[in-house]
Amino acid sequence: MITVENLVKAFQSTPVLKGIDHSQQRGEAVVLIGPSGCGKSTFLRCLNQLELPDSGRITIDGVSIEGGRRRRTAEEREQQRQLRLRAGMVFQSFNLFPHLSVIENITTAPMVVKGMAAGDAERLARRLLVKVGLETKADAYPSQLSGGQQQRVAIARALAMEPKVMLFDEPTSALDPELRDEVLRVMRQLVEEGMTMLVVTHEMQFARDVADRVLFVDGGRIAESGSPEQIFSNPQQARTREFLSRALTR
């Protein structure tokens, strides 16, 4: 479902990703952990082209994009859009559209991008709101919701485009601890339904319980990869051990 080959990315002259290879099966839930600034978020943002990689190749559900700094042709921009349509994204800061109601936040993209009829889009949105437990909030505005509720709307908004994979970029980091569970519960449910997911998080418990595979990213490389059992109980790398001992005692 996802294949990444030798992904390289630098900001100005600071290298952030130094050659990442990754491959992921349909229905697999992968969690990325690692210290801040290790490149895990950048990796995720490269996958749906919010950052353009300097080199390497990304393939999601058969759509491929080559990295490189150049002006994109119309054809390449269309490829880019196709890639984004296959990858739903959930942001740390939710990024709901404050001028639109909850239901409009969800229906706008299907209508504008896919040309879905208003009625169909609304039915879809209401079904998704039920799924994230916010069916009563359809007409509210984002500012009237708690952080946890906003993030659940953001998940519903991404799901409305019916993506093949879901990318989560630290979805609970901006939330108070008591609000994190409601978001994690929705994510857990998505994993159970067989969604292909790539999650950047500091929630070690979530990684341990839900992930099929955990990647430890360090210094712009995938330093270690394995089942949660392997990574958490028997890490091979000193850096992984060091990171986990700090992360788990926190």
Binding site: L50, R81, G88, F91, N95, F97, P98, V113
Partner: peptide, 27 residues
């Protein structure tokens, strides 16, 4: 208007112009 607004719109598959017109300009 925060960059995240444009990013969210692009991530949903909107074109640059759709993001500007539907998300950025109204705000």
């Amino acid at each position: 208007i925060p960059r995240g607004q444009t990013e969210a719109a692009l991530a949903l598959g909107m074109s640059r112009w759709q993001a500007v017109r539907r998300i950025v300009l109204p705000q």
